[in-house]
Each structure stands twice: as C-alpha cells, then as structure tokens.
C-alpha cells in the first residue's frame, strides 16, 4: 500500500513538472503580450526585460484605438467572420444532415472530397481563386473574402458535423414524423435542439478560420480601410517598424480577446466536435 502511494506521488510530481514546463512554453507569449500592452515606452526598451510593468498605462490602447485604424480593422474582421459563420452554419447543417441521414449515390465520394478538400496547398488554391475573383470583380471586397472563408470552413465543418449528427439517434425524428411533423418540422423542433453542441462547434470553427486567416486577406484586400485585423496588424508593423512594440501588443490583445472568449465558452463543444470523427468512444 505504501509503495502504491509512493508511486502515485511520483506520477503526480512528474505530471506537474511537465505541465509547468509546457504551459510556460504555451502561455508565456500570451502573458508577455498582455503585460507589454500596458507598458510605457521606457519599460519596453530595457536591457533587462520587465515582465510586469511597474506603472501600467492604457496609453497603448488609447493610441491604437484613436490614432490607428485598428478599430476599423476590428469591425471589418467582425463583419467578415460573422457573415462567414452564419453562411457556414446553414450550409454545413444541411449538408451534414443529408450525409448523416440519407443513403444516396456518390455519398462515399462526397465524403472523400470533404475530408481531402481541406488538405490541398493553400497557395495552389489561392492563385486560381484570385484569378477568378479578379474576373468577377470580387477582389478587394468583403464578399470575396467571405466566399473564400466559407469555402475554407465547409469541408471540415460538414464532416465534423456529420460525425456529430451520427451520434443523435435517428428515432428522434422518426417518432416526431410519425406524430405528424414534416421532416423539416422534425428537424427544426426535435433534431436541432439536440444537435446544438455540434453546431456550436462548427460556429466556433468557422469564426476562428475567418478571424485568423491571413494569406487570402493579404492577397485580396487592396484598400487599407478594408483590411481585417490579421493583415492590419502586419501592415501597421510594416509602416511603424518594430519600435512600437507596446502598440503592437495592444493590437494583438484586441485580436485575441474575441477568440479567447468564444473559446472559453465553447471549448468543450469544439473539442468534442473535433474528435468526434477521430475517436470512437
């Protein structure tokens, strides 16, 4: 018994030691970003780096929100990501429902395409899409980016959601339909409420893609006032140089906060959604 307890203790100590090391690696850049966004200039350029500012200041946020178009970038990103999420939600719910509930020809090949579709080199897709969207006059428009992001989210979301829908028993809609609901009614009243966590995961996934994406936005958006945050912050660093780290970190915090809030609320759904296709439990 004593040996058992000792072994368990060793395991705990090892686990904690490792978790401390790894969370220093994963979380330190965030801590650094967050505290630096409250630093005044002298504390940024010190030979000995300061982690926590002695006199925290909001000057960086003030500057970024009033003197740079960061607020504008933020709204651009919010608009693009919200519309993308809504579009992706409707399209993936329909597609995933069909894949999960119906037998039809090409079902398997469609599945293959959904899985493989997200794997192709981004640049290989970027070039023809850019050429095509130029012809359609959609370059340098929000609509163009929204279309591209919805496409980016579709394959994986549909597959992920299909995996989730498969876990919802078919009898649920069947009995609702026997009770006189139409299929659409059964889906709306009975199926969707049960499937909500999976759908929430898709929302988070689509929002994250649109919020974080860089390469397409960098290529498509020509007008500065249409930049989303990811391109905006890089542009700002390009013109201001790296001397304004405090400002840059304040902007970085603005980018991360919405994603972080979303993540904290939907973390569980995201994880169960992501692993639904991969792990049969």
């Amino acid at each position: 018994m004593e040996q058992f307890v000792r072994r368990r203790l060793v395991r705990y100590v090892l686990a904690y030691a490792w978790l401390l090391i790894i969370s220093t690696f994963t979380a330190f850049p965030f801590l650094w970003m967050l505290t630096s966004s409250f630093k005044a200039r002298p504390e940024i350029f010190t030979r000995i780096p300061v982690l926590f500012p002695k006199e925290p200041t909001l000057a960086n946020y003030n500057y970024v929100l009033t003197e740079t178009p960061a607020g504008r970038y933020f709204l651009n990103s919010l608009y693009i990501a919200t519309v993308t999420t809504l579009l992706a939600l409707v399209l993936t719910t329909l597609g995933a429902y069909a894949l999960s509930r119906f037998q039809f020809r090409m079902r398997r090949s469609l599945g293959v395409w959904l899985i493989a579709g997200q794997m192709f080199p981004g640049v290989l897709m970027l070039i023809p899409l850019f050429v095509t969207l130029t012809r359609l006059n959609l370059v340098n428009t929000y609509a163009g980016l929204i279309i591209v992001y919805t496409m980016g989210a579709l394959p994986f979301s549909t597959w992920m959601l299909k995996g989730y829908f498969d876990t919802v028993p078919r009898e649920l809609e069947d009995s609702a339909m026997i009770d006189g609901c139409s299929r659409v009614g059964a889906i709306r009243r009975v199926f969707l409420p049960v499937a909500a966590p999976g759908i929430a995961a898709v929302a988070l996934f689509a929002f994250t893609i649109a919020w974080q994406e860089f390469m397409f936005a960098l290529t498509m958006m020509k007008d500065q006032e249409k930049y989303p945050l990811s391109v905006g912050i890089n542009f700002f660093v390009g013109i201001a140089g790296s001397v304004v780290w405090g400002n840059i970190m304040a902007m970085a915090v603005l980018i991360i906060v919405p994603g972080l809030i979303f993540f904290l609320f939907l973390q569980r759904y995201m994880i169960s959604g992501l692993t639904a296709g991969a792990v049969k439990g």
């Binding site: 650094w32 630096s36 940024i44 945050l229 391109v231 780290w245 840059i248 970085a252 980018i255 993540f263």
Partner: peptide, 29 residues
C-alpha cells in the same frame, strides 16, 4: 489544460509578431 490549449486562439500572424519580439537579439526575452 486551458493553458496548453491557449495558442489555438492566437492567429498565426499575432503569434509570429509576439515571438519575433521574444527572439529579438537586444530586447528579447
């Protein structure tokens, strides 16, 4: 678990900029 997963919410651009500062020869951590 939360701390280990946190880089997930960080856009690659922001990650790159923050690390660039950490890697900075003179002022980097």
């Amino acid at each position: 678990r939360g701390l280990a997963l946190i880089p997930w919410v960080c856009p690659a651009v922001v990650a790159a900029l923050t690390w660039r500062w950490i890697f900075d020869p003179h002022f980097g951590m």
